[in-house]
Write a protein that binds this DNA or RNA. Structure first.
Lengths: 340, 340
DNA sequence: ATTATCATCCAAAACGTTTTGGATAATTAA
DNA sequence: TTAATTATCCAAAACGTTTTGGATGATAAT
């Protein structure tokens, strides 16, 4: 029982053209006609066919997002706040969000290519930017609109929103050092992520500022999962390097770190300090609550979307980069423990 | 630089028809021709235009999901596992997932109507089914394919996957009673949710089986948020009803409950028992770990999607209901505390 | 009274596919 | 040899919009 523009044309006696123009707000339709057409359209429950409109207009009014269908992304509250921000903003302008899940068989690149070449979406949102990210170079080559969450290091002036990774780790490390810590184990995100090197740099700089020797063995890169956090903390403990503080680069990792420390009967906040990065409800609600770095991630999702939509509606939109400074939230896991 | 079927026709010397047929696997194309066309198509990076194909085929190969853009849905790991399951399954058959966010201005019903009437998606997945759910009656009226997560009580034989709410709460209550609890505060989901009454019934039945008087004042319905959990536990504590166990109907609520109990200096697992429902990483990783009800939610997401896709591809698919029994996971928050 | 302007309208083309309904030539059956 | 069958092809219609490029008649300007 789908009702098309033709049905309305027939019902009102006007041409298909006039109906279309009346409904989309052209000026060359008499007020009376427009009123009549709108009334009838409403009565008949007309809604323009999405595919037809997209085909003709050459725009789908949809934003694309490719995410791996592993549990990694979809159980990290950090990512979800981001997604929520995207949703919040896109719903404002009635853009829809198309989520394509990649899997083993169809990797991110394949899905992305399909999305772009089949013109299924008007623009793309990227996250977790890699060094020499292939997705970025593909989109640049195709001149396809996109905005990234994470710094892009390709040549040129591309739009992204970034959290200042150097500043983030500097703040935390600095805080820990001020509490008297010298042996701080730094558990970083995987090296292929662009932000990994900036985060490492911030950590190193803080040590340097206080003349603390950098120890290679205290730094480990791994995926942001709880199991990674668990095994790494165990590994470091086994090395017996007299570490007094752990700084994990994701809240999800903190879950595993806490578990490992609990099992080792090392009391967090008293015998060892623990800081994380992301400040989701994970670190907020742990026992003890864990020092973390607040990032306005919902807002970042909104911002990224807003930028993309602006680009979609205005080819000449001046591409901008946004850099956000995170805010240190000090909690019991580091605040009460003071070394000398 | 988009390449259409016409370009390939020109490049190979065949008609547009033949190119289309060769690419989609019709039998009346000679092997040599097909090979040639496929080769050229690949070389030129051809990908069928999605809108055009959808318009002609009258199917979009996309599944729709409407979620409120409040933080509620998108920070509940339970919902996210569900989403992840949907993604996992849909990616298998290359269906895409369109997420439409509702907001204050455009409510769920408006968004759903738009989605359906504009033929943007082939089918819909519903969750959090309400009593006399308007979405359900709308979809039934429009004869639009859908599958629900949650029991549907309208007349007729509609496809849904349900978790047995009666069994769930019965199991937990039974477990608590066996540990000696008689004053069990039952914090239920909002009444407008279909499952609320079944959950209440399971709780009541367990009490009845042990001849424990049902106390109205110990039962409260509210949203599944941490702040609700927090304020309700406080409220119950204030009533001074000598409650020995709290049973909250969502893991997210447990976050708030734990906070309230911590603040009141009541030790969980020793002075009071706490059980939740959902068994996400929230209850798993709390201190102490919290008894909860495991539900194969990822699998449910897969199942729902699978059912919907079957319906989409076979109008005569026998509609089925799936009912899932949750599994009690006993943890320290209830296991060590035994009353007499 | 004629021309210019304006308001209102519409037929047809276009978007890029898939499908319908044959056409043609080659092969097989009679 | 002729008729029937088969393999391979294609022009044109269709999907439901929006847009192009006027057409028409009424009003205003000259």
């Amino acid at each position: 029982m789908k009702v098309t523009i033709k049905d309305i044309a027939k019902a009102t006696g006007f041409s298909v053209t006039q109906v279309s123009r009346a409904l989309t707000g052209y000026s060359d339709v008499s007020p009376k006609t427009r009123e009549n057409i709108i009334k009838v359209a409403k009565e008949m429950g007309y809604q323009p066919n999405y595919s037809a409109r997209s085909l003709r207009r050459q725009r789908t009014h949809t934003i694309g997002l490719v995410i791996p269908s592993t549990r990694l992304a979809l159980t990290d509250p950090f990512f979800l706040e981001f997604l929520s921000g995207i949703g919040y903003e896109s719903s404002k302008t009635r853009y829809d969000l198309l989520i394509s899940f990649s899997n083993n068989k169809n990797g991110q690149m394949k899905i992305l290519k399909d999305l772009v070449l089949s013109r299924r979406v008007d623009g793309i949102i990227l996250n977790r930017i890699e060094n020499e990210d292939k997705r970025v170079s593909f989109l640049l080559e195709k001149k396809y609109p996109f905005v990234a969450f994470g710094k892009i290091e390709s040549d040129g002036d591309h739009p992204y929103v970034e959290i200042d990774g150097f500043d983030a780790t500097y703040q935390v490390t600095n805080h820990l050092i001020k509490k008297g810590h010298k042996k701080i184990s730094f558990i970083n995100v995987p090296e292929w992520q662009v932000c990994a090197k900036y985060r490492l740099a911030g950590y190193k700089k803080a040590l340097e500022d206080y003349n603390i020797q950098f120890d290679d063995e205290l730094v480990i890169n791994n995926e942001e999962t709880d199991s990674a956090g668990y095994s790494i903390v165990n590994e470091i403990l086994k090395k017996n390097k007299h570490v007094t503080a752990f700084f994990v680069n994701s809240d999800v990792m903190a879950i595993g770190a806490v578990k490992a420390l609990n099992e080792a009967k090392i009391e967090i906040g008293k015998e060892i300090a623990l800081a994380a990065l992301n400040d989701t409800n994970i670190t907020q609600n742990m026992n003890p609550p864990i020092t973390s770095l607040a990032q306005p991630i919902h807002l970042i999702g909104e911002k990224v979307t807003q930028m993309l939509i602006k680009i979609l509606n205005n080819k000449d939109f001046k591409l901008k980069q946004v850099i956000i400074k995170p805010k240190l939230i000090i909690r019991e896991s580091t605040s009460n423990m003071i070394l000398n």
